[in-house]
Every structure is written in C-alpha cells, then in structure tokens.
Design a protein around this nucleic acid. Structure first.
Lengths: 187, 187
DNA sequence: GAAATTCATTAACAATTGTTAATAAATGAT
DNA sequence: ATCATTTATTAACAATTGTTAATGAATTTC
C-alpha cells in the first residue's frame, strides 16, 4: 500500500529513510472510531487491510454513506484540509491495518512534493464525481434497482459489509433490504 | 448579466469592442431544446432572463435533475469541455433571454484570459458539491422532507417551475408530489 | 464453550408511493 | 373568445416501504 505512495513520488522513495517515520502502521479492531463527527480531522489513513465506513447522525439515526477498502486513502477531506469540524464520522467495520499520517507531517510532505496536493484534489474530485453519479441513481432508480446496481458494480461491498450498513447506504431500512433480497434471490 | 462577466475580467471590459460580437443575445420560447442528449455541446449560455432545466432519459422517462435561473452560466460542462456527447439535455421552461457564446470563441477567450478557465473549474466544483449535498439528502430524507427542504432553501424553484418537473427532481411521481403538497399545505 | 450481544429474517399493520384513469384547472394557439 | 393541449388533482388499487416486535442465526465476549 505504502509502496504505491512511495513509488508514485520518486523523491519520496529516494529519501525514504528521512520520511519513513511519518508513516505509522496501526492495527485497529472492528468498530474502532477513527474520527468522530464534530472533531477536526488531523490524520489521513491509507488502508492496507480492512474496511472503513463514513457516516453521520441525522434525527437519531446513524447513516452510512460510503465504504472504503484496501488501497484507498481516507480522511474527512473537507475537515482535513479546512481544519473545520468534520460533518462525518469514520469507523472500522473490519479489523483493519492502516497507515496513519498526521496532518502536520502531511503538510510538510506536500510542501516538498506539490504533486501530493494535486493528488488530493484528484481524490476529492473523484469523490464528488461519485456522489454526482449516486445522486442521479437516487433520482432515477428504485431501491431495488440501486441494490441491483450495487450487486453489479461493487459486489465486494455486498460481500463484505454488514447488511444494515448497506441498507443505510441505499437509503432504506434493514427490513426493506431483507425483503428486496428475498424478492431477487428467490424464495 | 453579461456585465458580470465583463466586470470580473478587466481586460475584457477594456477591449470590449473587440469581443462584443462573440456574445450574442437570443430569445427562445418555452420548451426550446438548447441541447439534445447525445449531442456535443458547442455553446455555453448565460441566462439573462428565464429558466432552463437539465434532464436525461431513462427507461422511457424524461428525468429532470437541475434548474437554472437568471445570472447562471449553463452548459453540459462535461460535454462542452471534453467534446464528448452530452449525457444530458438542456431545455427552456420559460420564454428566456440568453447570451450565447460558441465554444471556439470561448476557447479563444480562455487563452487570453486564463482566469476564465479557473472560473469554469469553480462552477464545475460547485455543481459537484451541490450534487454531493443532494445525494446526502436522498439518503437521509423522505420525499416529503426533501420537498420541505426545497420550499425552505429554494422557494423560487417551487414558485416558477411546473410541478411535474419538481416531482422528477425529487425522484417521485407527479401524483405523489400532489399528495405531499396536500398533506403539507392543508385540506 | 456458554452467555451475551449483534445481526438478519419474518410477520403484521400503517403509511407512503406508483400506476392508471378520470376530471378539473390552467395555459396556449388560432 | 373558443378550442386544443398541457398540467394538476383526485380516486382506486397494487406494490413497496417503514415501524415494531418476535424469532433465529451468527458473532463476540468472557
């Protein structure tokens, strides 16, 4: 995982001894909260192994709206880059191995390697673009169709993520998702 | 309207005689199609007066997902900037007065005034950011709540846009929107 | 490995939505 | 002004979803 970052920035690899201490590997249990809603994001995570979910509270309900897997860089980017309280929480939903970089260190790295900043913007744009697609899907598809889309396009989510989080992600209740599955997969 | 563009770019104002022919004002009837789905966007519009909607076809239905009003710059930006066929259509839903700029001319302007490009990126980012918000609203709110949000945050849409387009925008049928309104506004 | 907790399914009922069709109201065209 | 078309409402019924609660299955904890 970290190899990816290392390799994409030549200077980083060449001076690896100088930087390697900034990348700390941690292992966390499932359900470990990595960022609480309202906190300011001071870390960025690279997922080496495992799965995280991003969520927020609304009317007494915990709503999950994105999942992250191996190879992805994760933070509440808005909070991380603006130092404003995060609107979202971040939590492990599998025992996970993460590479942690602190904001201070990350900013120093950014100064030395401006391509990191570009990469961050790229990630942000990709996320927004993804949300745009999901918005269109909500406007045109039924919950059942959205489940089928997920099955088609991101089967790993359905395989690995507990069902009630998927229900939340589809904007429906766990009970309703169970019924949809019954309708689709038979009996 | 065009004043806005003129004023935000000093050089434009100073050499206005040179450029003014690139900005053509047109008046269009309601229901005029300005860009068909599948066409490559070769124009950008600045709305001086009136209202447009952006839409696409899915399973035999025409789905509206955004409205544009006075003072906004509109194009199928993805198509306009990538020269790929547009996924979306653009249509007037009021008699409208538009300033049209052709892509060629716009690109020439961009070369002379790079801040225009930045402005375009800004517009694109704003639109994505808006879609992100709408996505979260779909995931957490009921159709009725989304209607109330619209009433609260963008009452001009409800005042000016025919109801069946709003229904589409909310992801529900016109019949259902009529029932929601009855529930809310009484009797 | 037993107990506790979490998660998924099912049932029952209420509420909401979709669909179709009929009617009423509003808008546009000649 | 009249006619035609479009748009909004209402009704009736089917389908879907939400909610609550009970049960079963799976997982975690000790």
């Amino acid at each position: 995982m970290i190899e990816l970052l290392k390799n994409s920035i030549p200077g980083l690899r060449d001076n690896w001894d100088k930087y390697k201490d900034l990348f700390k590997e941690i292992k966390v249990d499932s359900k470990t909260v990595l960022l609480r809603e309202g906190e300011i994001a001071k870390k960025i995570f690279f997922i080496k192994e495992g799965c995280l979910r991003m969520s927020f509270y609304s009317k007494g309900k915990d709503i999950t709206f994105q999942f992250f897997f191996e190879g992805q860089a994760v933070s509440s980017i808005e909070s991380f880059s603006s130092s404003q309280p995060s609107q979202f929480a971040l939590e492990a939903i599998e025992p996970s191995t993460l590479i942690v970089v602190h904001k201070k260190d990350f900013e120093n790295l950014q100064k030395e390697y401006p391509e990191i900043r570009t990469g961050m913007q790229e990630i942000l744009l990709q996320r927004f673009s993804r949300y745009a697609g999901l918005f269109l899907s909500f406007i045109k598809d039924t919950p059942q169709q959205r489940y089928l889309n997920l099955l088609q396009n991101e089967p790993h989510i359905i395989q690995r993520v507990p069902q009630h989080y998927i229900a939340s992600y589809l904007g429906i209740s766990p009970v309703s998702l169970s019924r949809i599955r019954k309708r689709i997969h038979g009996i």
